[in-house]
Amino acid sequence: MRESLNDILCCPVCKGDLELEITEQEGDDVLEGTLHCGECDETYEITDGIPDLLPPEMQD
């Protein structure tokens, strides 16, 4: 995902903003990292460029 995509992402549970932490990127493209919701204290993974914003109960 592009780094700026985080502007239109939100926590699927509380709709709050997410804090992006990048562990691997290629230019503007975030490949690995996390999106953290401070309100829910929930962390969502970015894997291979795709953020997984399924609520915790729907994740594998």
Binding site: C11, I50, P51, D52, L53
Partner: peptide, 18 residues
């Protein structure tokens, strides 16, 4: 994503905001 489209795994549009 493999086809070059920005993609988000989420239920409906729950992980997006306008």
């Amino acid at each position: 994503r493999d086809r070059g489209v920005e993609a988000v795994t989420t239920d409906l549009a729950h992980g997006l905001k306008g």
